[in-house]
Design a protein around this nucleic acid. Structure first.
Length: 623
RNA sequence: GGACCCGUAGCUCAGCCUGGAUAGAGCGGGUGGCUUCGGACCACCAGGCCAUGGGUUCGAAUCCCAUCGGGCCCUCCA
C-alpha cells in the first residue's frame, strides 16, 4: 500500500487533533487533491464549522498549525487554503523512493479484503442454442474482470458458467432438427453455434408464425428433453454440447476462463428443487393460494409487486424455481448432489470441470458469498432470489451484479440488412438482429493487423498476428468495461474500430513506447539508488499516478466497479504520454538522472501492466 | 396501472454512492508542435442555466420530492 497508507495516516493524525481539541467526531474525507490544490486534501474544517461556531477558514488555519509530520517523511507540509480546505503537499524527494521501490513488487496494488474467503462469480450463462453476440460479451467481460479484481483483493474466487440446456430456446432448435429436417452438421464448415443461431433458430421461430401446430410442438419437445432417457433428450444433449464447445472457443479467444460448468438439466434431475421447496414451505417463505387468480399455485411474495408463482396449479415448477436451488447450491446451503469430471483443458491450460450425476469425484465450487452477473432486465427476479438467500444465510451473501443491455446503433442494424425505427435497437435472436462476438473480434483483429502492418515494416507475420490479437481483445474488453453499469451501450460496428483517443490501443501504445526507450539504451536500470532527481512536474505527476493504483483497486473492490480500473489505466497512460513528450529520457544530462528516469519508466510499465492485467488486457512490447 | 434505470459540451461519456475549491475526458471543429526515445502522440482554443420545477443545507451536477423526455421489466413463457 502506498497512497492508501498516506491517506490513512493523515486521517488518523487528523482524528488525534480533533480529539485533542475535544471535537465531536465527524465523517470527513481525506483524498487526492485536484491539480493546483496540493497533493492531498481534507474537508474537515467545513464539517466542524457549525460545531465550533467558527468559519471553515479560521478552523483550517488553526488545524494546520497542529500537524506534525516527523513520523511521515513523505508529507512536506499542510497549508490552510483560503477556501477552508486543508491541503497537504507530498515531499517527492522521499516519496519517489518509496513508490518506485514498491511498484516493482509482484503484489503491487494487492489489498487485503477477502482473507482468502471463497467467493463464487457466475457469469456468461448463455443458452446453448446460438453463438455469443456483443450483448453477451458485456456480461462475460464484466464477470471476468470482477473475478480478477476480487482475486487482487485476496478472495479465493471460483468462476461458474450456468448452462441452460433444457429451456424453450433449446427446444426451438431441436424442433428445427427433428421437425424441419435441418442437418445436424453445419454446412461449409460454418461454426456450429453460428449455424444453430443464424439459421436453425431464426428459421424455426420464423416458421411458428405461419405454422401454429409447429409452435405447439416446442412444448412437447421441451417435455421430452427433460426426460433424460428419451431419444429427443439425447439429441438435445449432443447438440447443446456442440454449441457450448463452440461458445467456449469464442470466450477463450477473449481470454476468459471458468472453473466449472453447471448444467441446468442436472440441477433439475438432482432433485435440489424438491429439497428447497420443502424448506421454503416449512420456513413459511411461500404460500399456497386457495382462491383468486393464482388459485392452486405456490407463490412467493415480492415486496411492492405482485406475488410470483413458483409452482403452477398443475404442479409444474416455473423457471424461477430453477434459480432458487441453484443459488442455494452456490452458497453451499444444500448438500451437494453433484460429482465433477473434467470437461476440457482451456486455452490457458487451466482445467475446466463440469457437474455430473455419476462418478464419485467430489469437489467444492460453492462460496460463502456469491456474485451473479446478469443484465438488469432480470432485476426483479434477482431481487426475489437474493431476498430469499438473505433469509437462509446473511444479508449480502448473494449479490446480483446487474448492468444495462447492449443495443445496436441504427447504422449497424442497417448494415445487417434490417430496418429500425429509432436511433438504436434491442438485439433479438429470433429476428436475427444481433452481431456475433466472433464477427466483432475478427473484424477488429483485421483492422488492427492492417494498422500495425502499415506502421511496422520489419515485423514478422506471427508478431503482427500476436499484436492484432492483443489489441483487438483489449479494445473489446475496454469498451465493455469503461461505461457505467447503468448505461446502455449502443454498439456501432464502425465506431468500435476506433483506435485513437480514449481507447485501449492508446493505453497499450504508451506501454510500447516505454519499451522502446528501454530497448534503445544499454544502461540497465539500477534501482538501488535515490530518486529525488525526478523533480519536474511531469515526473512527479507520473509518480503520484503510479502511487495511486491502490486507491483505485480499493474503490473498484468496494463498489464492485470494474470501470474504475479502466479509467485509472487510461489516466496512467495519459500521464505517461505527457511525460514522454516533455522529458527526453535518453537525452538526460547526467548518468544518474538517466538511471532514475529509466527506473521510473520501468515502474510505470509494471504498474500499467498490472492494472491492464486486472482488465484481462495484455500490454504489447511493440505494436 | 406498478417497479427499476437513464437525461451533464454538436456527439459518446466521467464526476453523483461518500454534498464543498475552477464541472472533467474523448470524438468532431479550429490552431500550433518531429535535424531530439515511434504522430495509435503532445500543447492550446472554441463549446455547458449539469432535463425542468420545488425542497433540505452555510453550500447541490451530487441528497429528497414532483414533472417532462427516453429505455426496460411486470405471462400459471424460459
Amino acid at each position: 500500500m502506498v497512497f492508501l497508507n498516506l491517506l490513512e495516516n493523515i486521517r488518523s493524525k487528523t482524528d488525534e487533533i480533533l480529539e485533542a481539541k475535544n471535537c465531536e467526531p465527524v465523517k470527513f474525507s481525506v483524498e487526492s487533491a485536484k491539480p493546483g490544490f496540493g497533493d492531498i486534501t481534507c474537508n474537515v474544517p467545513f464539517l466542524l464549522s457549525k460545531q465550533l461556531k467558527k468559519s471553515p477558514q479560521e478552523i483550517s488555519r488553526e488545524l494546520s498549525e497542529m500537524y506534525n509530520f516527523d513520523d511521515m517523511p513523505q508529507i512536506k507540509n499542510v497549508e490552510s487554503h483560503p477556501s477552508g480546505y486543508l491541503n497537504f503537499s507530498i515531499d517527492y524527494t522521499k516519496f519517489n523512493d518509496l513508490v518506485i521501490g514498491l511498484s516493482l513488487q509482484e503484489n503491487y496494488g494487492t489489498l487485503e479484503f477477502g482473507n482468502n474467503e471463497k467467493i463464487v462469480v457466475e457469469h456468461t450463462s448463455v443458452n446453448p442454442n446460438k453463438a455469443l453476440h456483443v450483448g453477451h460479451i458485456r456480461n462475460i467481460i464484466l464477470g471476468d474482470v470482477v473475478s480478477k479484481i476480487l482475486k487482487k483483493a485476496n478472495y479465493d474466487v471460483k468462476i461458474l458458467n450456468y448452462v441452460d440446456d433444457s429451456g424453450l430456446q433449446v427446444a426451438d432448435i431441436i424442433v428445427g432438427f427433428t421437425e424441419l429436417g435441418f442437418s445436424q452438421e453445419s454446412p461449409n464448415n460454418e461454426k456450429f453455434d453460428h449455424y444453430c443461431g443464424d439459421t436453425v433458430y431464426v428459421k424455426t421461430t420464423e416458421k411458428y408464425e405461419s405454422d401454429k401446430e409447429l409452435e405447439g410442438k416446442r412444448h412437447e419437445i421441451l417435455k421430452q428433453i427433460e426426460d433424460r432417457t428419451s431419444e429427443v433428450s439425447k439429441i438435445a444433449q449432443t447438440i447443446t454440447r456442440k454449441v457450448l464447445n463452440e461458445q467456449l472457443k469464442t470466450v477463450w479467444n477473449l481470454g476468459v476462463f471458468y472453473d466449472c460448468l453447471n448444467f441446468e438439466s442436472q440441477i433439475i434431475h438432482s432433485k435440489l428443487w424438491e429439497t428447497i421447496f420443502e424448506k421454503l414451505k416449512s420456513d413459511n417463505q411461500i404460500k399456497y393460494e386457495n382462491e383468486g387468480d393464482n388459485s392452486g399455485c405456490w407463490v412467493i411474495p415480492a415486496d411492492g409487486e405482485d406475488d410470483k408463482i413458483l409452482v403452477r396449479s398443475n404442479g409444474v415448477a416455473t423457471y424461477i424455481a430453477k434459480d432458487i436451488p441453484y443459488a442455494a447450491w452456490k452458497l453451499g446451503l444444500v448438500e451437494d448432489p453433484f460429482h465433477y469430471k473434467i470437461h476440457s483443458t482451456q486455452k490457458n491450460s487451466q482445467t475446466l470441470y463440469e457437474t455430473t450425476l455419476e462418478g464419485d469425484n467430489k469437489l467444492n465450487f460453492s462460496g460463502s458469498k456469491v456474485i451473479t452477473v446478469i443484465d438488469n432486465r432480470q432485476i426483479r427476479l434477482q431481487k426475489i432470489v437474493s431476498g430469499l438467500m438473505a433469509k437462509f444465510k446473511e444479508e449480502g451473501a448473494y449479490t446480483h451484479l446487474g448492468y444495462e443491455s447492449v443495443t445496436l446503433s441504427a447504422d449497424t442494424v442497417k448494415s445487417l440488412g434490417l430496418s429500425v425505427d429509432g436511433e438504436s435497437a434491442q438485439m433479438s435472436g429470433r429476428k436475427g438482429l444481433y452481431v456475433n462476438a466472433d464477427t466483432v473480434l475478427e473484424t477488429l483483429t483485421k483492422r488492427v493487423y492492417d494498422e500495425s502492418k502499415s506502421r511496422n515494416e520489419n515485423l514478422s507475420e506471427s508478431e503482427l498476428q500476436n499484436i492484432a490479437n492483443i489489441v483487438a481483445v483489449g479494445t473489446i474488453r475496454y469498451e465493455m468495461i469503461k461505461p457505467d453499469l447503468d448505461k446502455i451501450i449502443t454498439f456501432d460496428l464502425k465506431n468500435s474500430l476506433r483506435l485513437e483517443g480514449d481507447t485501449c490501443s492508446y493505453i497499450q501504445y504508451s506501454y510500447a513506447r516505454a519499451s522502446r526507450i528501454l530497448e534503445k539504451t544499454d544502461v540497465k536500470p539500477n534501482f538501488n539508488s535515490a530518486f529525488k532527481l525526478l523533480s519536474s512536474e511531469y515526473e512527479k505527476n507520473l509518480i503520484k499516478k503510479i502511487a495511486m493504483f491502490d486507491v483505485h483497486v480499493n474503490d473498484s473492490v468496494n463498489n464492485l466497479s470494474p470501470k474504475v480500473i479502466a479509467k485509472y489505466s487510461y489516466e496512467l497512460a495519459v500521464t505517461f504520454s505527457s511525460f514522454y513528450e516533455h522529458v527526453k529520457v535518453l537525452a538526460s544530462e547526467t548518468t544518474e538522472l538517466l538511471n532514475a528516469r529509466l527506473c521510473l519508466v520501468v515502474s510505470f510499465q509494471k504498474t500499467l501492466k498490472t492494472s491492464l492485467g486486472l482488465l484481462g488486457i495484455d500490454a504489447p512490447e511493440r505494436m
